[in-house]
């Protein structure tokens, strides 16, 4: 099977003042694959996906979507191109309910008097919201509940569901399993697999390599703003990825868990 590139990043450089957060990063995302983007704290992972999703603009470099050059000035433009992102700092509004959050920014309205007045279609949106959650197997007792009363796992599920429902081409997840209990992690990773079955390409950022290996087809590793390697998941293992992330050193804790150790601070 010939590999079909959906998103291509060419020589992306991003600076914050004197700090070079991304240094000449080139990366391809293939159609219908799960790419794990890994790297130490501050490696530039979030910065890179924010550039893809239009939340940040690169200083140098180009982005191609399906072979066509794109310049996303805002997150909305990326959304229109079918790229949905779940940001690390969780892009849900606590004081809105589940349904409102799922449709935030794409509310359905009814026009009255030739468009003089437009009103929200509450019922339709609630119905569709319930359907979105049902198809993904997400159980939320009441979709009219404010998001702030949900558990961390439920909130994360809602955020991922939003991306899954509206991302036509690419879904980007920035640490979707951080701070979740084991069972909830399983749920989120199942969601990722479901999205892949729908034919969507997924970029997932995580510090937990076990989680990454459960869903990823491929790995891309960033270290201090540079891409230091790409590996096919089935041809590599955790040790090799850890070496790439840290630049060679890692420690094995007493319980046998691998802990990533910064190589230079």
């Amino acid at each position: 099977m010939k590999k079909d590139v959906i998103l291509s990043l060419r020589n992306i450089t991003k600076r914050f003042g004197a700090l070079v957060a991304l240094d000449d990063v080139s990366l391809d995302l293939y159609r219908n694959e799960v790419l794990a983007l890994v790297g130490d704290n501050g490696a530039g992972k979030s910065t890179l996906i924010k550039i893809i999703s239009g939340a940040l603009i690169q200083n140098k470099g180009e982005i191609y979507l399906n072979g066509k050059k794109v310049d996303f000035a805002t997150p909305v433009e990326a959304k229109r191109a079918g790229i949905e992102t779940v940001y690390q700092d969780l892009a849900l509004v606590d004081t809105l309910n589940v349904a409102n959050n799922l449709f935030l920014g794409r509310e359905e309205q009814v026009s009255l008097l030739g468009g003089t007045f437009k009103f929200l279609k509450h019922r339709l949106m609630e119905k569709k919201a319930q359907e979105i959650l049902d198809t993904l197997g997400i159980k939320i007792p009441n979709i009219r509940e404010q998001v702030k009363y949900l558990s961390g796992g439920q909130r994360q599920s809602v955020a991922v569901a939003k991306a899954a429902a509206f991302g036509k081409n690419i879904i980007i997840l920035d640490e979707p399993t951080a701070a979740l209990a084991v069972k909830e992690v399983g749920h989120i990773l199942d969601l990722v697999k479901k999205c892949k079955q729908k034919g969507i390409s997924i970029i997932i950022i995580t510090h937990n390599l076990e989680h990454a290996f459960m869903v990823a087809d491929r790995f891309a590793v960033l270290r201090v703003g540079k891409k230091v390697g790409e590996r096919i998941a089935k041809d590599t293992d955790i040790d090799e990825i850890v070496k790439l992330i840290t630049g060679g050193t890692f420690v094995v804790s007493k319980k046998g868990e691998r802990k990533i150790k910064a190589d230079s601070m």
Binding site: A55, P75, T85, L90, L104, G105
Partner: peptide, 13 residues
């Protein structure tokens, strides 16, 4: 939305 989380609102367009 803006009052509840301005970042999320901005990202929602």
């Amino acid at each position: 939305a803006v009052g509840g989380n301005s970042n999320a609102s901005f990202l929602a367009g």
